[in-house]
Amino acid sequence: MTSATATAERDAAAEPSSARIVAFLGKTPVYLLLGFIGFLWLVPTLGLFFTSLLEPSQIGRTGWWNVLSSPSIATFDNYNAIFHNHAITSAIWTTVLISLGGTILPIIVAALAAYAFAWLEFPGRDWLFLLVVALLVVPIQMALIPMFSLYNDLGLFDTILGLVLFHTAFALPFAIFLLRNFFIGIPRDLLEAARIDGASEMRIFLRLILPLGLPAIASLAIFQFLWVWNDLLVALTFGRNTQPITVAIFSQMRQFSANIELIAPAAFISLAIPLVVFFAFQRYFVQGLLAGSVK
């Protein structure tokens, strides 16, 4: 197949007239193959979506591929039901709060620290920065047990604040690392000029550094938002009644087959929002993921 396409390409260079058709035909196998693989990749997600449209009476009796049969057995009843299910709606709301808090707070805290590491002079600065970056190696699992006990003592267990603070702390090493490296690229002259003009450090930070650092901050924000929205481990450990949507669905999974009419639409909603965020800001996301392996 590869040599066939290569031949087609050479022909295309030699004969401009009929060559395009030859080239296209030569690539037909590639198109077909990619079309097939692309379809295969979509099937699982489509399966969840169509399952969520099945009438409750049909769940467990028929496959999702029959949803499109006529007469149609598709219905939005399941969605209607979960939007009237208090546990699910409050879980969605909790997810939104945790995700926003867990995105905004680490960015503020990290930006402040990153500015200090980039542009303020103090003894041991580079040493301290290295130490902060070194914390990247600590997996979340290392913090679960002590924080579980500490949260109980501090009254942070089962609170949104507790979850937000946990996500914030574990976002910091990477966020500080990324932002400091970005801030340090801001021309020194700009800062010097502002300082000479009498601007306070806080003013420089707010008026100069933050606007200039926006690309890095945006990239960080999207990655962090998706990370927190999609979290299961932290919320499962530190929440009981404060449940984001992942945990709310998880608690239904013990009787998976019996609860599909609830699990399928709830899972679809839980993935629809990240999907929108993600496709809106795709290119920032890839950078974040590559870097995110250090989390």
Binding site: W41, N230, T246, S270, L271, P274, L275, F278, F279, F285
Partner: peptide
């Protein structure tokens, strides 16, 4: 092919 990346591993 890239879409599953946006979905949580849990979903």
């Amino acid at each position: 092919v890239f879409m599953p990346m946006a979905i949580s591993l849990f979903a």
